[in-house]
Design a protein around this nucleic acid. Structure first.
Lengths: 381, 381
DNA sequence: CACCATGATGTTACCGGTAACTCACAGGCG
DNA sequence: CGCCTGTGAGTTACCGGTAACATCATGGTG
């Protein structure tokens, strides 16, 4: 008897008393046994059809905007739907049509700013497109878990899946989990095995590095994210290339784990080296740690050392000093990937939209000209 | 013919060609016409039954752990399922059983640290319980949107709904939206109209205020969140009560909008007043703004002014100086609410679990003894 | 005016499961 | 030895929609 939750709720308890079955619990119970529905039971397509004096199929046509329904008929049906407060059942619809209008999203570290922003954007955009989003947040990061998540979503009948997969191995695991629906991978690059969308990490790192070089710093030290993270690796590569192109020395990058703690640790090392005048950290948290380490060592920012972060978290503008950083348009990543996925769902793959989202350098006060005395090309651009 | 995406996918093609009906359209077409399934088609319960030599119903029983299946039979069926790689269809299951095993979550500001953490926790916990989570992220905050979201989730057949509703009016809107499934409201208080879970805002504000009073500050200034936000209002009330109880003066609270910007604005006002020695901000972002304003005015923290934040965002420990703050256990809010909701789903409401999640004061370096000369009860506690 | 294309709607079967009922068979009991 | 009971499995109907096909006016054409 627990068919639909709430079916048997004592009517008087239900706040605003939507169900009119005041004292006829029998009516409720008889539902499912007799063909007729009673007030209070969720109306189904047949009820609408009966009230409108048409067949079920016509109601279905109205629901799906089928053009071959006469306008007057459509109106009658719509009125009946409104009168009854009819809502189609997604389960039934999915079962019959084979499409669930449900998208799956797999994300890692979903509480962090970047992923959370992407997730939110996907959610909003999907809602606008009439899709529901089922998300699976993964914390433990082992291969089996990833495969299982994909499997779950696939079994649930997701029409498509978006995975926010910042680590390389996750991308590979995703590629292996053979999925019978379109897959879109974010912050990763599966070659031609799947569609992907990513921020332009290379450009971001290049801009940050060039900005510091332009300020006259002899070279730029780098606090990198952990190896194996696509974004970290791409940024390291671009940072290195930029330095080489400029003919600057390439110091060994210091590898952190994205946390402010690790930034602090590494920052202390950098602070101890008087030659260090410019630091580019691969995210704002680590930059924050670096700032603190520098501060504690008595090295002033930006007078003695310039610091650039990455991501532009909301706090960045108010750090001491306000942090120069590379802004990633996370929402854009989300919406763009959703658009791409949806375009895959109906019709053949569209012409390649731009899968690389541009980034922007936000200059604030944590960067400044290299301290005089060691600037080879001080203060131009 | 596009019934199920990937139905006819030749296994070897899988990845890049979603609709692989290249040259075996007959096989694909015959599906749904003939009773037999072909390799590549998603196996259904009937296939398992045939392979296992039992009836569909028996397979269903195995699937649902029905005790009246002989162990040997169960084994045979399970083997058949494994062989075929069978996964039950959620749509069909929902349609027949009336339960979707899907939970809806409505959230505001889902990219912010608190909501995102709660969301993630709910997600993980739901997954463990075998539920899928469909989330709707709301940005525009008008009543109609809220009602529509609830409506959507309800129509989608969610077995239950959790709403992260930090503002009072949202709670009311939720209560009005007639919902035929259990509703759980977070960070809000609907009286007895719905279940809720919330952090202990009063205790947090009290702890923060007492901490500052104990340090010898004559009184504590408050940078509040916007009126109408439950947490903001509760914190203001508790802050006021605590001051009154201690016999301290109660300055007019300054009202911000949670952003660091607003904290900065208000912080400048506070910095200009030499009587201000202790500030309690209703979240860490605003505290950050206050810190910056104080810094720019040359007032040292904590020597001249002590600052306490709220939330303990990951960055708090590395601000300059590291921020004393009240830690809210967001994940706990998420998991607890999920537990409560699930317990409502099966069986009658359980004895009231504790719906108020405790908070913890994290003392770091942004607070210190009141500057000498004006401390009425300096340095005990 | 018969003929066929067309548009609007109804009929029937089916999607993939579950609920309720039925049935065959074994053992306990009078 | 016949009847009752209970266990394990099968049958049938049904959930609420959609697809494919059938039906039936209507109207333009030759």
């Amino acid at each position: 008897m627990t068919r639909r939750a709430g079916d048997g709720v004592p009517p008087q308890e239900q706040v605003s008393g939507p169900h009119g079955d005041v004292d006829v619990p029998e009516a409720v119970r008889s539902r499912g046994r007799s063909r007729r529905n009673f007030a209070g039971a969720r109306p189904v397509m047949g009820d609408v059809a009966r009230l409108a004096g048409v067949s079920k199929q016509t109601v279905s046509r109205v629901l799906n905007d089928n053009p071959s329904v006469r306008p007057e008929t459509r109106e009658v049906v719509l009125t009946a739907m409104r009168t009854l407060g009819y809502r189609p059942s997604r389960s039934a619809r999915s079962l019959a049509s084979g499409r669930t209008r449900m998208l799956g999203v797999i994300s890692f570290d979903a509480a962090r700013f970047g992923p959370a922003s992407i997730l939110t954007a996907i959610n909003s955009a999907a809602q606008d497109a009439g899709y529901l989003v089922s998300s699976i947040a993964l914390d433990t990061a082992d291969r089996a878990t990833v495969v299982r998540a994909v499997d779950t979503l696939s079994a649930e009948g997701a029409d498509g899946v978006i995975a926010i997969a910042p680590q390389r191995w996750v991308g590979r695991a995703l590629a292996e989990a053979r999925l019978d629906t379109p897959l879109m991978v974010l912050e990763n690059d599966l070659g031609k095995d799947a569609s992907f969308v990513t921020a332009d990490n290379a450009a971001g790192a290049r801009k940050a590095t060039e900005h510091l070089l332009d300020l006259g710093h002899a070279t730029v030290h780098h606090v990198a994210g952990p190896t194996g993270w696509l974004s970290a690796d791409h940024r390291v590569a671009a940072w290195r290339t930029t330095l080489e192109t400029a003919g600057a020395a390439v110091p060994e990058p210091l590898i952190g784990d994205w946390s402010a703690d690790s930034g602090y640790e590494l920052g202390r090392r950098l602070a101890a080296d008087p030659d260090v005048t410019a630091v580019f950290a691969s995210n704002d948290q680590m930059a924050l740690g670096v700032l603190r380490a520098l501060h504690e060592s008595g090295r002033r920012v930006p007078d003695d050392v310039s610091v650039v972060g990455y991501d532009d978290i909301p706090e960045a503008a108010h750090l001491l000093p306000p942090l120069t950083t590379v802004r990633t348009d996370f929402p854009e990543i989300g919406t763009r990937s959703l658009r791409l996925l949806l375009s895959q769902l109906d019709g053949p793959p569209e012409p390649p939209v731009d899968r690389v989202v541009p980034v922007e350098l936000i200059v604030r006060r944590s960067t400044g000209p290299a301290p005089s005395g060691r600037a080879p090309a001080a203060g131009h651009g």
